[in-house]
Design a protein around this nucleic acid. Structure first.
Lengths: 185, 185
DNA sequence: CAATTATATCTCGACGTCAAGATACTTGTG
DNA sequence: CACAAGTATCTTGACGTCGAGATATAATTG
């Protein structure tokens, strides 16, 4: 790599063959530096990796869940209810905020889960506009099984990192997500 | 927090009020530890944050791009071509692997971009099955503008971290993405 | 060189999501 | 208490994606 005196090149040359492997984002960043040497594309080093990794995780999860006959979106809803604790019920509105989807989507999801017998809709006794969505016993079991499978898969992916690296990574990511999660982003 | 002797509790108590803010995943993990104290949910600390952050980034990007009259998927395709360098052309197949979508989706995307005059389809002179997708001058300009906007936004998000933290984060993420990007995941 | 297999792209129908608006109920105000 | 504003959920239509299969061309093999 060419050294350019006086130019802000804050990233450090890494001997990739020793420390780790090159990834798609390294290639992407190199391409931008070639095509747009006037731009500082350092942000992509972090945020493009986040997006791409998320994409890969989606695919991997889809696979893991299919072994339990669940779609990712089904898992999201069922586990939100499961986490709520007995009696495993939340309003559609509470489910919205947890799953980051719109209300139309959630109505549709609840419909389909109810048809499969994994949740049931109950009238909210304290607000007649409202509804409560409750996990059925089968829904609860399916959620628990799928969670165990997911964790096994995720542990395998994270085996790339040491325990302390995982802690560091979680901490750094928290710093980035906290503004979104706390300020109504 | 309760201390449980003899139990593997590898995460470290952090004084959140001093070091940073709690995020949605902290709440999620706390809920699981309450509902399923038998499970080790540590993997979620990293990978759920990756997924949720990616989701937030999608939304933020959508906003940034809309100022330039582009959708995120349009940006993905246009910038893939832009990065390729002059004459800014790639086959649909090359675009597939860069954007992680299926061939049916890419056909559709190219159709729509061509209708907007941002790309054009040319026959591949060396393979009559093939097609080349080429950026138009306007397509190139739009890609460059949108990229500048995106980088500005991402820099703002990353201002949460110091320079060295950004470097650390990029490195840790690379270790996780490299297996997906190199082994045909 | 014919037959087979592989590759590149496109077509098409099903599906999930979103955004905007509709409906029904509740809360706050005077 | 009446009325306006707010809230919770559902409905609807447009849209983008996927996945399986179709078509056309290339590469391989005997």
């Amino acid at each position: 790599m060419v050294k350019i005196l006086g130019m802000k090149r804050l990233h450090i040359d890494r001997p990739l063959t020793l420390i780790g492997m090159e990834d798609e984002v390294d290639r992407l960043v190199a391409a931008w530096r070639r095509e747009r040497p006037d731009l500082d594309v350092e942000p992509l080093e972090v945020l493009s990796r986040v997006s791409r990794l998320a994409r890969h995780l989606d695919r991997a999860r889809r696979l893991a869940f299919s072994e339990h006959g669940l779609e990712p979106w089904e898992f999201d809803v069922l586990t939100s209810l499961r986490r709520a604790g007995a009696p495993y019920q939340l309003s559609p509105g509470q489910l919205l905020t947890q799953t980051l989807v719109t209300s139309g989507t959630m109505t549709n999801r609840i419909d389909r889960l109810a048809k499969k017998g994994l949740v049931e809709r109950l009238p909210d006794p304290s607000d007649r506009r409202g509804v409560l969505v409750r996990l059925t016993p089968e829904g609860r079991d399916r959620a628990d099984e799928a969670l165990a499978g997911l964790l096994a898969q995720e542990r395998a992916i994270l085996a790339q990192l040491s325990q302390s690296q995982r802690g560091d990574l979680a901490g750094l990511l928290r710093q980035l997500t906290a503004p979104f999660d706390n300020i109504p982003g």
